[in-house]
Amino acid sequence: MTHPTDPMYAVLDEWKAAFDGHQIDAMANLFTRDALFQGFGPEVMSGRDAVRGYYEAVPENRSAQVTVVSTYTIGEETAGGFADVTFSDPDGWAAPVHMSLVLRREQDRWRIRQYHVSRVITDE
């Protein structure tokens, strides 16, 4: 999935590796301290500790398939985009989502400032 100059690809490469490896601290460290996070739950969470708590509750056998759909950059410090992600486990559970990210550069590293997923409902 790597694209050499696009921050969205770089961050999602790190995110996928940490998610698939259930590396909670690595996941949380991808986010800014004041990140806004909307996962599968109904409420928006704020902050790296909330993100850590969210990912601690995800079963360890889950993985993610990621396809970047669109990316953008605004100046030197803001980037983001959209991806299609399917979360799955070895037992056949799968949840396709649309993911949107807003990224912010902090000290020469891109971090997730805003994360949002919405489930894709199919008639299958």
Rank of each mutant, 00 (worst) to 15 (best):
K16W: 05
S46I: 03
R33E: 14
E56C: 12
S70R: 11
G39L: 09
G53K: 14
P96F: 03
F87V: 07
S88Q: 13
A64H: 01
Q23F: 09
V120K: 11
I121A: 12
D13G: 09
V102I: 11
R111W: 13
D49P: 13
E56S: 08
P7Y: 03
Q107F: 06
M1H: 04
G21V: 13
A17T: 14
H98K: 14
E56T: 06
H98Y: 10
V51E: 07
P7V: 00
T5Q: 15
M1Y: 04
D49W: 07
T2S: 15
P59A: 12
S88G: 14
V97D: 09
G92K: 09
V11T: 02
Y72E: 07
V51K: 03
P90K: 06
R52C: 03
V69H: 10
R111M: 06
A17G: 07
A94Y: 09
S46A: 13
A17W: 13
V120C: 08
L36P: 01
M45L: 15
D6S: 15
Y72D: 04
N29G: 10
D84V: 15
V120P: 09
Y115C: 05
R48Q: 12
Q107G: 07
F31C: 10
T5K: 15
S70Y: 02
L12H: 04
H22Q: 03
E14F: 02
L103H: 08
R119E: 11
V97N: 14
D123M: 11
Q38M: 15
L36V: 05
E76A: 11
S46D: 03
D123C: 09
D89I: 04
V66P: 09
R52E: 12
Y54I: 00
A83L: 07
V58F: 04
I112A: 01
